[in-house]
């Protein structure tokens, strides 16, 4: 995990590099989340100052978008699709299986810090439903069995 001091430096570097772009706030927030893993609340004043915005405006943007998070994610983030196409292929029962298996609900992280579970409304993989994404990897026609084996593969990699 990034130390508080170096994190502030990182945030400073990112805002300095990107603040002059037109509409810079989203690119800055993306860069911070890509680097730090989330957007720590303590950075909000720093970002607001660099862009001449109020802290409320920056907080409003972070909380408006589902993708941005203000808490550290687990080691892996599982995005499970809840949309219609995946529902037509058993997405709902896969969803309850995954939640039971991990022992968490959406927007939560397992106690061991390994997995965060997020809902997603379409991964554009609707021809291969149900779909999920783990970190940057996308999976199609996910079944309980393939979900388990994917997790086993991830743990063996670690």
């Amino acid at each position: 995990m990034t130390e508080p001091h170096s994190m502030q430096v990182t945030v400073q570097e990112i805002t300095t590099a990107l603040k002059d772009k037109p509409g810079a706030l989203l690119p800055i927030l993306h860069a911070i989340q890509d680097t730090v893993g989330y957007i720590p609340t303590v950075c909000v004043p720093q970002i607001a100052g660099a862009l001449n915005l109020s802290r409320a405006e920056v907080h409003g943007v972070i909380s408006f978008y589902h993708y941005f998070r203000d808490t550290p994610p687990g080691k892996h983030t599982i995005h499970l699709c809840r949309a219609e196409s995946c529902q037509s292929m058993g997405g709902k029962s896969l969803e309850s299986y995954v939640k039971t298996k991990l022992g968490i609900d959406f927007h939560e992280t397992t106690a061991d810090g390994k997995y965060s579970l997020e809902p997603v409304y379409c991964l554009g993989n609707c021809a291969c439903s149900p779909a999920m994404q783990i970190d940057e990897e996308i999976y199609g026609r996910v079944s309980e069995k393939t979900f388990d084996s994917t997790l086993t593969d991830l743990e063996n990699l670690a």
């Binding site: 699709c81 949309a83 219609e84 196409s85 995946c86 409304y121 379409c122 554009g124 993989n125 609707c126 021809a127």
Partner: peptide
């Protein structure tokens, strides 16, 4: 921002 479920032609 192809958010509609069931669509993937943009992608």
């Amino acid at each position: 921002d192809e958010g509609d479920s069931g669509t993937f032609s943009d992608r």
